[in-house]
Design a protein around this nucleic acid. Structure first.
Lengths: 149, 149
DNA sequence: GACACATGGTTGCTTTTTGAAACCATATTG
DNA sequence: CAATATGGTTTCAAAAAGCAACCATGTGTC
């Protein structure tokens, strides 16, 4: 048996997140949804992936409560895939992935895209990690412990 | 041909990031490295994955400059896998994945792990997205445009 | 230095998943 | 009501995941 190992029951939240959204196409679908894509055809055209793969990913995303189906906004009999609150909450992950990619996956001068503030068109700030008291934290300033809740 | 589609040349930084680290095991390896794992055997024991898969992932991570090999810290003739600056920079992504997982992938009361500030043991703040002028931004306050650099 | 055992892989084989293309049912348009 | 767009499902080949067996080198023991 070569079933893809499941991390669904890991006690590590990172593992559970990766289990749900740690797939290239899944993340690209969420990205496109955040940029306004709603219809099966829109996702397919934008991503250029096989329709069976797209159908499987969309189905899983709906089952996991990240997308939901609702009547099409254009009044047709089709349905729209829209992000739930859980799906919208992926936004910081998307930003983190984007900022890392900008910094480490492009050569200087290579064409890319940037995230801007809708209000004024200016580029957003880098994500920062802060302690409970507001101190800026870097790599090495944190560690992981079992929850005692 | 059913070659896994490559997003290596996408102009979207999210796509490039996912291409490099958007794999369950890859992210788990980086997570363990951040928690101090250094040796092949440590990763294998901690993750419980097949050795050939681990070897392939580690090799790719080294090729991509996320991990590097260096002489073992214990003085033996073996080698340690340690995070490069590029690898350490994945930290905010890890935090974002962790926080989303905590909020949306656990039932109340389920055992989990939490990230704390090393200095005082207190739980860290939620990641926040800020505009250039410091305003707090939420989902919907941002958009993507081609870089004009 | 000879031996057993640990470490860090590689190889071979089976099961799953991916992906391309063909097909199909329902909606919409002319 | 025929043609076409939409949103899939089915079929089949290729690639990757996963397990187990094997193997080379390093280390500890006598």
């Amino acid at each position: 048996m070569a079933k893809r190992t499941s991390l669904k029951n890991s006690t590590c939240p990172v593992a559970r997140s990766m289990e749900l959204i740690g797939d290239c196409w899944t993340m690209m679908i969420i990205r496109d949804a955040m940029l306004g894509a709603r219809r099966f055809g829109e996702f397919q055209k934008s991503l250029g992936l096989a329709k069976n793969i797209l159908a499987a990913r969309l189905k899983a995303l709906v089952e996991d409560g990240i997308l939901k189906l609702e009547p099409a906004a254009d009044g047709s009999a089709y349905q729209d895939y829209v992000l739930t609150a859980k799906g919208q909450a992926v936004h910081p992950i998307m930003v983190a992935l984007r900022q890392w990619g900008e910094d480490y996956a492009f050569k200087p001068g290579e064409p890319t895209t940037i995230m801007i503030d809708r209000k004024n068109g200016k580029q957003i700030k880098k994500l920062e990690l802060h302690a409970a008291d507001g101190r800026l934290l870097g790599y090495g300033d944190t560690t992981i412990v079992p929850s005692t809740a």
